[in-house]
Design a protein around this nucleic acid. Structure first.
Lengths: 212, 212
DNA sequence: CAGCATATTTGCAGTTCCTGTAAATATGCA
DNA sequence: TGCATATTTACAGGAACTGCAAATATGCTG
């Protein structure tokens, strides 16, 4: 009758709790005093752990602010993208990335605070950009998989991988644009609307072009 | 008769010499041992200056490798872009940025060594990317200026600045794509060819789209 | 050239981030 | 309960970086 409630072991729960405690304290301090005026020591004192534990969890001071939980799409998400109805690689990829960033984080409040802090701290913003761009390689793979699923092949299109890279680069650019608007608070819309709005802008921009 | 040879004062020449000595030593050591295995102390010993002097010059360890001086486009370049014949914002902006990056470094040998080291050091590569993306804000301004020069105005197009940002974001994405290829050594072409190639790819990618 | 003003270099103390190591403590499990 | 393993902690120390004031070098004027 009684379902085992113990989905997670005590250890795991404590770990999660500690991680969240530290991160919350860090972000709170960061927003209050500014990133560079917060020392690891302060964060540790506020969250009642040793410095060594802090570094065990996050590896670096920046890590506690920048590293989100998992920010790679789940296999299901990837599958959905690869075999998607997919008339629009661009829109679909944008959605996939947006999903990965937003839905991955269960705590929306913390997520927003985190991004507010990152947005107002050049050092963290750069790191965040770097982190995002590091995942691009994976996305190139997904786009290629999708192309293959659609029957497109390297034999028919020799520079198919270049094409994939370009798609990822463009989406990435669009993503940065969207993130910028989002943290600036100009996007209260749902993600669907956001995708639509961004897509429209891209279309307009590219349509206006008289290419060289 | 004798033209004053003293274009630069002794002080200035010494400064330049010291800077070059330190940077050269640093890059040599970096290529030899790898970035993270080189300490500032080693660089200082090799170039016979104190650590304090090192930091006076470069501000940080990364600085000696990444900072190339400021490379923003000259007023003439900007003017050329703003009032350009301009059938293609995209291509023109891409060219402007490419010009800005390649220009300016008188010492080609060192320039190449530097980029080789940056390319093989993720930490430096990220920093380099960050440095580039920091100039994006300025480019948004140039695009807006160009729009205005073309008679486009915020009154007729309320979200003109959004459009400018999107253009910069997309070009920036394309730029990263190009840099990636460049670092990988797949681009031996001239910049004109590079622009053409990138443009063609963008057109193909966007043309294939069935936008949402 | 002397001598003063200013620029540059340097030494040194101190802060902060971060790492290795080994001991102490907590949890999981038989 | 008691052992295996995971987690936390203290401690020592390396390396990046900053502020400060003294020492040195250069520029300039008379």
């Amino acid at each position: 009758m009684s379902v085992p409630v113990q989905e997670e072991t005590l250890r795991a729960r404590k770990r999660t709790a500690t991680l969240l405690t530290i991160r919350t304290a860090a972000i709170e301090l960061g927003l209050e005093k500014g990133y560079e005026n917060v020392t690891v020591e302060m964060i540790c004192e506020a969250s009642m752990v040793s410095q060594r534990t802090f570094f065990n969890y996050f590896g670096s001071k920046e890590g506690v602010f920048v590293t989100a939980g998992k920010n790679m799409p789940s296999p299901e998400q990837v599958h959905g993208f690869v075999e998607g109805t997919g008339s629009s690689v661009f829109g679909d990829l944008f959605s996939l990335i947006a999903d990965t960033m937003v839905d991955g984080d269960p705590n929306l409040k913390l997520f927003r605070s985190r991004h507010q802090l990152i947005a107002q701290t050049p050092e963290l913003l750069n790191r965040e950009k770097a982190r995002i761009s590091e995942t691009e390689e994976a996305f190139v793979g997904y786009v290629m998989a999708r192309y293959h699923f659609q029957g497109r092949d390297v034999s028919s299109t020799p520079d198919l991988e270049d094409e994939a890279r370009m798609v990822v680069a463009l989406v990435s650019g669009a993503m940065r644009y969207a993130m910028q608007k989002w943290v600036a608070g100009n996007f209260t819309a749902t993600r669907t609307e956001l995708v639509r709005s961004v897509s429209a802008l891209i279309q307009r921009v590219t349509a206006n072009e008289h290419w060289p």
